[in-house]
Computed example of a mutant assay.
Amino acid sequence: MRRTFLTRLRINGSYYVLGGLLLLLGAPLYQWLWLLPQGYGEALTAASRGQFADYVLWLHLHVWSFALYRLLQMVAFALTLSLPFTLFRIIVAQEVLGRDEEEAGATTGEEASPAAEEGAADGPGAAVAASDKPLPQTAEELLAVPWRGKGFAVIAAWAGMLGILLLVLGNLASTVYQVGVARTFTAEMVLTPSFALVAGICTLVSTTAGGLLLALATLLFGFIIVRSGLQLWPPLWVALGYVAMLLALFLTGSAVQVALSPASGQAFLTTPAFLLFACWTLWLGLILVRLRPSPAS
């Protein structure tokens, strides 16, 4: 049962590594090597100036290239959809282990077992494997215990999942709509004002609403980890918590900037925020992939 939990963490970690690499390298390289030489940068500049006809005309000429670029982004975010609840389970498991060690130390006055110490050094997943008590394996089991279903962790988990879901669905709706309009658009046609309105709403849903929810999740996750600090978490996880709080600032700034100008599709902080999210996701994924069960498990 404990090995199954650890194996699930490693499998999820591989998804986050792949998603982080797609966001950090796959989509940017595709944009830089393929889209920009075809005039994508000029099309975005035209859209930011309100010249949406020029932007849609470019889409008409490169519709499938644009669709593939958006697909890479959506797949990358979709691969991280389970990340908030995975991190939630890790936090709960680590706190359970910490409480068990405190109770054991208070009642016996003995030091923690070597297996538990080695698990804590390797990371929360390994520490979970070293615990004597079987831990919950699903979100439903975690939420069935009252104190585990309350507080910052569960808010962060739901906010993070909804935020990523809005990022995927908002991008999907935007892509389908823009591709549908661009396929039949020609230079002789007049673009209706509704294009900017619909595109702006899709951007507000994905980058603003989704970004704010994701910012809330990363802020709370970071706060929970940093609050316990080295007393409960290895140094690598504490550093991950601080980066999560920094990421929340970037995501919030991007969401606010986009809200002030939704028709442009993105803002100055949008690219740095998503690149930092990709690095943070990749970092977490690598930690989970490298987890190993302790010899005592």
Rank of each mutant, 00 (worst) to 15 (best):
L6P: 05
I90T: 05
L213H: 12
E103C: 05
P136W: 10
P235L: 02
A139E: 07
T184G: 06
W237G: 05
F5G: 02
L44I: 13
E42S: 09
L18S: 10
G210E: 03
N171E: 14
A76T: 08
F77P: 05
D100E: 13
R89P: 02
W32P: 04
E95F: 11
L21I: 12
P272C: 14
S194A: 07
A126S: 11
G123M: 01
T208H: 09
L219F: 12
W280D: 14
A273T: 01
Q266A: 15
L83R: 06
V205C: 12
G13M: 03
L284Y: 03
L166M: 11
L276M: 14
L249K: 08
R292T: 06
A244T: 01
L81P: 03
M74D: 13
F77L: 14
L36H: 08
S174M: 06
F274P: 07
D122M: 04
A129H: 07
A267G: 07
W283K: 09
Y55V: 00
W283G: 14
L24F: 13
G210C: 14
E95R: 13
P134Y: 04
T270Q: 12
A239K: 08
C279V: 01
C279G: 12
P84I: 12
Q38A: 08
L197D: 15
R183Y: 02
S254K: 12
S65Y: 00
A182R: 05
A144I: 00
V256D: 06
T184E: 06
L246F: 13
G39Q: 08
I201H: 02
L83Q: 10
R89E: 10
F223V: 01
R99K: 05
L29M: 15
F85M: 12
A93D: 07
L22F: 13
R10T: 13
A127H: 00
A76K: 00
L21H: 10
A244M: 00
L240N: 15
